[in-house]
């Protein structure tokens, strides 16, 4: 195991302020506080070379957990071990072996080209000049950042900047890469490119990847395992496949018939109907696919049919809403 988290908890104290000037005045003389349990008794472990998605709605505690794991925040309770090290006691030693990208925060210097930031970051990680040169050449080739390597960061597009951010976090060849919302704000094409790059560094260099994202495609396309957190608590930990196929026993049937659909069965819900086309939702806990199919075949002439699992977005929102 490269990462072990056991009973991790973190509570923040926050001031409660009433609205308007009156609230501000009251808050000044008799402030009220409330405790927010950002992370509550979380335990999991990650194996070497895994790509794990750590997902949850806004304010679920994803970033706080990453910050606790990387040693940025001190936990109130619990134990964290990263590469058999305590992130606080061994902060400097651990920093040489992990990399992190916080999509919202940049580690590149805004007014200087990425090549200068890479050079400085290489020195921060104690790399010699030839090592930095070799590493930058490799990352430039993998991330295809050559054309804008010497252009000031402020002049880069968001997609170009994120590619440089991830490359910068890999300058010291870390064993674990933490990515907090790496595809936030990117267009579809760039998102796809970033996903390919993450997969490539995982396969080529056996880098363990631990990522948070709101984009279900990120999870579906690059992760094998998913951990879902909501209101500071873990609500699901398993493979992406398992989540999609077993967690929600529902299937979607898209069917085109030669006549309008007429199917009144328990466990089958008509989601959409347009002329002779229909979209049905089958609840496998109530009926079986065999029964539904034979009913359809007996009652209708089918022109076309497709069966799919629930879209990932819906699976995840059901988990968030406590539907599973």
């Amino acid at each position: 195991m490269v990462l072990e988290v056991d009973g991790l908890s973190k509570t923040f104290k926050s001031r409660v302020k009433g609205s308007g000037f009156k609230g501000s005045l009251k808050n000044m003389f008799s402030p009220e506080y409330r405790s927010i349990e950002a992370v509550n008794d979380i335990s999991f472990s990650v194996e070497e070379g895994e790509i794990t998605a750590f997902i949850g709605p806004n304010g679920a505690g994803k970033s706080t957990t990453i910050k606790l794991i990387t040693g940025i925040l001190y936990p109130d309770e619990g134990r964290v071990s990263v590469l058999n090290m305590d992130p606080h006691k061994d902060r400097k030693k651990l920093a040489y072996r992990i990399g992190a990208v916080f999509g919202q925060k940049s580690q590149l210097w805004y007014h200087l080209p990425p090549s200068d930031s890479f050079d400085l970051l290489g020195s921060i990680y104690n790399l010699s000049a030839p090592e930095i040169k070799k590493r930058v050449a490799y990352l430039t080739q993998v991330f295809e950042i050559g054309p804008f390597l010497n252009q000031a960061v402020r002049k880069l597009s968001l997609g170009q900047r994120i590619r440089c951010e991830i490359a910068a976090s890999l300058i010291h060849s870390p064993e674990i890469l933490f990515l907090d919302e790496p595809t936030i704000g990117l267009d579809v094409v760039v998102k796809q490119r970033i996903r390919e790059l993450i997969t490539r560094i995982n396969q080529d260099s056996k880098v363990t990847v631990f990522l948070t994202s709101h984009d279900t495609c990120d999870i579906e396309k690059i992760c094998r395992r998913v951990i879902v957190i909501n209101k500071g608590q873990m609500v699901w930990d398993g493979s992406v496949k398992q989540m999609k196929y077993s967690l929600l026993n529902k299937r979607i049937i898209n069917v085109r018939l030669e006549e309008p659909v007429a199917l009144n069965m328990k466990g089958v819900e008509l989601l959409k109907e347009k002329g002779c086309s229909a979209k049905l939702e089958v609840d496998l806990t109530v009926t079986s696919m065999k029964k539904v199919m034979s009913a359809l075949v007996t009652r209708h002439n089918i022109s076309d049919i497709s069966i799919s699992t629930m879209p990932m977005d819906e699976v995840i929102s059901s988990i968030y809403e406590g539907g599973v």
Partner: peptide, 14 residues
Amino acid sequence: LKKYSSGNRMGTRI
């Protein structure tokens, strides 16, 4: 540092 609570504000290094 033990009281540091971080944050999620967007930021760049200048």
